[in-house]
Design a protein around this nucleic acid. Structure first.
Length: 569
RNA sequence: CGGGGUGUAGCGCAGUUGGUUUAGCGCGCAGCGUUUGGGACGCUGAGGUCGGAGGUUCAAAUCCUCUCACCCCGACCA
């Protein structure tokens, strides 16, 4: 491709509305353009990279036994009503009404559709296991799209679904996909960290996320450097430690004038925050929830939401709290009535806590669970942070940021039950199908790869997903053979099957070199009056500082060898 | 949805106490000439319903009302 003809224009100025690296570089390189919030056109360079990622994924999923299909983007709302996810997804579902007044959904994912198809195609144990996948545009009306391709409302995704006879079969399918995912991310030149994750609106029990670590990531990941335990903060387990403050003593009211927050109360009574109990109030799907947790721990709203099986969870307003007869600042679970109480398990791992007195300026000492109050549920609803310790080896955690590029789930029989997916076994008995599902965000992966591979000049594409492999840079000068030499090299490279972007523009060297750096093509080959004096061309890896002069003779062969060495990670 | 912010040429911005403006500047773009190893220079030129609607006024990019779009921070996810 000749750069002079490429449908893209590089920009010198940093686009004002972008402040994430990948977003900036994609815009500056003329690789994407925005059409609406979270909606982008992929221009030729980005599209080529995306197609390469797609091909890598296709090869690896095929190798893992997947069969590619194409399911519809348009889906009848009824399927979503059957699974109940029209409620769970809520406003995230893009809906539209057809001419018959029938509501359709733009597919955000395909568990419902795929299960429905399987019901019509799988009848016998002989048909199992099966794994089907597609690579397609997905639509989600995200509350807040951001950072260009990292979170769009329309994005490219590979979604795969496995169907097995039983849990053991699912385990096998899941492991195959886990391996395939590792291979895909490695081949794309990215370094992924696999973490335990919450399954969110997809549902199911076990799930793992593939994170590309970068500061611009949206997720917080908790990592144990010693034993390797890694989890999304919203899922992470940790040692809360006990709060043994001696044998349970009798309750005792204390005056705490003006003391409301945990810090104030703990400071006033001269005890650590971990010896207090914190009350936090939420509204889950319209129901008021009283949450009790040890004073030094934050509530993990994801864990809480899962415990409650709620679609919608938010903090209660002060008015809602007062309406329940609760005294903010001195709220107590003791004697609370007609309110659902959820307690973190830290409250039963300690004694003689200080809790609210449920009247102004008053707290109560020596509160013990379950002697003094009852919770409807006692479970883990605490948020892990850096410095908390690993549940496996007690080493303090490190917290890092990451972008979730892939997620695999053991769905089990969640959808099979709701939609009715059964097969007949060897004995003629009808049994439920066990499912798994697996997603990779291709457009996000593209952006995340840039987050991992760039410098202050621009992108540094990993060779396997680079839009082109060679950036042929001709520095023209009157009275030299630069023009004809570059043209011949361009032709020879193409003949040899090397993907080459030819900078044939009549621009100054500075412009060309800067654009070459910005666009990040792995190998830069420069032909100039200077190099021709030595019958050679200058060859430089984008990722490296030093360039080398190589003879024009058999240059194509040499370049081919150089690239071959980098095609596999 | 809550909070913050921005809309003036393809991009980055100035102008906003209403009137000296025919709305400017830099980059980019077009033409001509000189240049050519890290974003060259000169000359000439094209390009704008100042996000939209309504209002106030002799007069609106500028003031008022409404509205739309976009960005950032939070709850959501590949």
């Amino acid at each position: 491709m000749r750069l002079s003809k490429l449908f893209a224009k590089t920009q010198r100025e940093i686009p004002a509305e972008a402040d994430t690296i990948s977003h900036r570089l994609l815009l500056r390189g003329g690789m994407i353009s925005q059409v609406a919030t979270g909606v982008y056109t992929y221009q030729p360079l980005a599209w080529r990279s995306l197609r390469k990622i797609e091909q890598i994924i296709r090869e690896e999923i095929d190798r893992a036994g997947g069969q590619e299909v194409s399911m519809p983007v348009l889906q009848p709302i009824e399927l979503w009503q059957k699974s109940g996810r029209d409620q769970a997804l809520g406003k995230t579902l893009f809906k539209l009404v057809d001419r018959r007044d029938h509501t359709l959904v733009l597919g955000p994912t395909h568990e419902e559709v795929v299960t429905d198809i399987v019901i019509h195609n799988i009848r016998s144990y002989r048909d199992l296991p099966v794994n089907i996948y597609q690579i397609q545009t997905k639509f989600r009306d995200e509350p807040r799209p951001r950072a260009g391709l990292i979170r769009g409302r329309e994005f490219a995704m590979m979604d795969a679904y496995s169907f097995d006879r039983d849990q053991a079969g699912l385990d096998t399918s899941y492991q195959k996909m886990l391996s395939a995912y590792k291979a895909i991310l490695a081949r794309c030149g990215t370094e992924a960290t696999i973490v335990e994750a919450d399954s969110g609106a997809i549902g199911g029990k076990d799930s793992l996320e593939f994170m590309l670590l970068t500061d611009s990531g949206e997720d917080t990941i908790i990592i144990c450097r010693k034993c390797g335990y890694a989890a999304n903060a919203e899922k992470a387990r940790f040692n809360k430690g006990g709060a043994d403050n001696g044998r349970p003593l009798p309750l005792e009211e204390v005056s705490t004038p003006g003391m409301q927050s945990i810090e104030q109360v703990a400071g006033f009574l001269n005890v650590p925050a971990g010896q207090t109990l914190k009350a936090v109030f939420y509204v889950a799907d319209g129901n008021f929830i009283f949450v009790v947790i040890r004073g030094d721990l934050p509530v993990n709203e994801i864990k809480l939401k899962n415990t409650l099986k709620a679609n919608d969870l938010r903090m209660a307003t002060e008015a809602e709290v007062l309406e329940k007869g609760i005294v903010p600042g001195s709220a107590s679970p003791i004697g609370i009535k007609n309110v659902k109480v959820i307690a973190d398990d830290s409250v039963e791992a300690g004694t003689n806590f200080i809790a609210g007195g449920n009247k102004p300026d008053t707290h109560v000492k020596n509160v013990n669970y379950p002697r003094d109050f009852k919770a409807d549920v006692v479970t883990d609803i605490a948020l892990a942070r850096a410095g908390d310790t690993c549940p496996h080896c007690s080493t303090p955690f490190t917290a890092v940021r990451g972008i979730e590029v892939g997620h695999i789930f053991k769905l089990g029989t969640l959808y099979s039950e709701k939609l009715g997916a059964y097969y007949t076994d060897e004995n003629g008995v009808s049994r439920i199908i066990v499912m798994g599902c697996y997603g990779i965000g291709l457009s996000r992966l593209l952006a995340a790869a840039i987050e991992q591979h760039h410098d202050d000049k621009g992108i540094i594409w990993p060779v396997p997903i680079a839009p082109y492999h060679v950036y042929l840079c001709a520095l023209y000068r009157e009275g030299t053979k630069v023009d004809e030499t570059a043209e011949k090299l361009y032709a020879d490279l193409q003949t040899a099957g090397i993907e080459v972007l030819f900078d044939d523009r009549k621009e100054s060297p500075g412009v060309k070199f800067n654009d070459a750096d910005l666009l990040g093509i792995p190998l830069r080959v420069t032909v100039s009056a200077r190099t021709l004096e030595k019958e050679s061309a200058e060859v430089k890896w984008r990722a490296e500082k030093e360039a080398q002069l190589l003879p024009l003779e058999d240059l194509v062969t040499v370049l081919k060898q150089m690239l071959a060495g980098k095609m596999r990670a």
